[in-house]
Amino acid sequence: MEVFQYVLRKLLAGIPLVLGVTLISFVLIVYFGPDKTYELLGKNPTADEIAEIRSQLGYDQPFVTRYMDYLREIVTLDFGSSESTDEKVSSILARTVPTSIALAIPGFVLGNLLGVVLALVAAYYRGFWVDKFIMGFAAVGMSISFLIAIIGFQILFSSSDGLDLLPVRGWDMSTPLQYIRYVTVPTLATVFVALGYNTRFYRAVIVEEMTRDHVRTARAFGVPPVQLFYRNILKNSMIPIVTRIMFSIPVIVISGSLLLESYFGIPGVGKVTYDAIVTGDQPILKAVVVLTAVLFVIAQLLADICYRVVDPRVSLK
């Protein structure tokens, strides 16, 4: 099984990366992280009590032993329980990941789809006013802070100074209508900002493909524009486009949009992560960091497989 071997080899090659991420997260969050001793002690602890707690927390162990323990927890996917709520980390993730995905999907899909469409229009009218207008709009999107876009759309749709149509903050997915009511403002802010970067990126990719020699050859053989576009430009642009999309996925699934969720008080992974940052809840941080790295390895793998589908020059060796 050629493909199976390839997948296995790729996953093995991802191990150093995940190890690196665990090492960094261990050093920064656990080893040099907040000292939990005093939170667990009563008032006026004795030296013995302090030593006992430190030993319970494993603070008296050498670096390597503690790192190995940390790794063991990761390999066995036993991330423990949240330090502030005692809920199991796995159940927290199971509860919050779907919310984050539901929040992120509309903005992600629209941002990329519209980005490609605008980029195509701009590239087709390269140098004309349509191009300049679209790229000017993209430059504005790129220059506006995400936070400002969020607040701006919130004022516009949710405040008494604006249209006052949609809820100010919060989250409800019980009915499709409620979902749309809550997801609209975050989605608009996301799309507005993402379009700036996406349009520029996709336009550069498409222009690059449009100026290739084989496009000129195709024109010299009378290929009409629509076919030229699908067979010579779009198919050849797929690699950078697929790469960009694949690598956005881990961020969406695991950290969600930390800013959106904490701003609107949406109970997704981003909100949980933010709360964990504020309270120093190590089991949650550990799970989020490690799972993101693992998803990056998987995204890399999926991207490679897509390359093979799109481009015959790439072989799975």
Binding site: T217, R231, K235
Partner: peptide, 11 residues
């Protein structure tokens, strides 16, 4: 054309 290496669509 001059460049046979790039003149055909690679995909």
């Amino acid at each position: 054309f001059q460049e046979p290496m790039t003149a055909l669509n690679p995909v």
